[in-house]
């Protein structure tokens, strides 16, 4: 058996809902049945066969040969298996992912990894706004699993995050870690705006510093603590990989004291 490939045959004119193209939903379907799956979001009724040429027969390993910023909801609620996107992904990539692995070589749209519960999401390029964040009205963002972004993250990454790890190699947009409940976010370069606004708990490790901090973050001075070394080493050996801090002492801020105030931000000395 070989993994299943969805070769993009034309650029979509409308947003496509690809949430049906996950291993559990494709299992046992013939290629003709797969070609008839509705993926359009307009009244035109676009189906898989209109946009993709499908080959291969193992639905537990899926490959999108060619991506698009309009390929929405890839890997939604996937509970196991592997998806690779060679190119860009649209909105809600890997939303509610439970287990398995999603890799995108290009960039992803808004709400990538939204309310994810487990598994690994890797984005080679940039991530849009609300990385790992909840949709409107939801009370929790990322609930578990690992998100690794090679480029920069948009605004409000880690909003209402509850558990898990987000690692962004590049810069982070305004409002990083807003309303965070718990969990860990590592950013390699500078965070814009005021990170951690209204965070209750959780940890931000900002290796490139931040534009500014709200005055409701209290400077605790240099922290030479073992946990930073333990975390750097655990990340290096796990899914996250090498991180831009090594256990050397960092400056610690505590906040946001406008709310519970049990969160912490680490900065280079």
């Amino acid at each position: 058996m070989t993994g299943m490939t969805f070769l993009k045959t034309q650029e979509p004119e409308e947003r496509l809902d690809l949430s049906a193209l996950v291993p559990a939903r494709l299992k046992g379907l013939s290629s003709a049945e797969i070609a008839r799956i509705a993926i359009g979001t307009s009244r035109r009724g676009v189906v898989v066969g209109d946009v993709f040429a499908v080959s291969g027969d193992d639905p537990s390993v899926l490959r999108f040969a060619g991506g698009s910023p309009r390929f929405d909801r890839i890997g939604e609620a996937m509970a196991g298996g592997e998806i690779t996107v060679e190119g860009d992904a649209g909105a809600r990539l890997g939303r509610m992912l439970k287990a398995g692995r999603i890799t995108v070589t290009g960039s992803a749209g808004m709400h990538a990894g939204s309310a994810m519960e487990g598994g690994v999401l890797r984005i080679g390029g940039d991530a849009g706004d609300f990385l790992g964040g909840p949709l409107a009205g939801e009370t929790m963002g990322l609930k578990g699993g690992t998100i690794v972004v090679g480029g920069r993250a948009g605004e409000r990454a880690g909003d209402r995050m509850r558990r898990g790890v987000i690692c962004v190699a590049g810069e982070a947009g305004d409002g990083l870690g807003s309303r965070m409940i718990a969990g860990t976010i590592v950013v390699g370069r500078r965070a814009a705006g005021t990170p951690g606004r209204m965070m209750k708990r959780g940890t931000l490790i900002l290796c490139g510093g931040a534009e500014r901090f709200a005055p409701t973050f209290v400077d605790n001075g240099p922290a030479d603590i073992l946990i930073l070394k333990v975390m750097a080493s655990a990340f290096a050996q796990g899914e996250v990989g090498e991180v831009p801090f090594d256990g050397a002492p960092m400056r610690r801020l505590g906040g946001d004291t406008a709310v519970l105030g049990l969160g912490e931000i680490f900065l280079p000395l």
């Binding site: 005021t194 606004r197 209204m198 709200a214 005055p215 409701t216 973050f217 209290v218 400077d219 946001d256 004291t257 406008a258 709310v259 105030g261």
Partner: peptide, 21 residues
């Protein structure tokens, strides 16, 4: 303004905070 509102919240609940604008 949003920072100052945050400072007022911290003050009302007795939590520490910086000086602000």
């Amino acid at each position: 303004i949003v920072d100052v509102v945050g400072l007022v919240r911290a003050k009302l609940s007795g939590r520490r905070a910086g000086e602000g604008a």
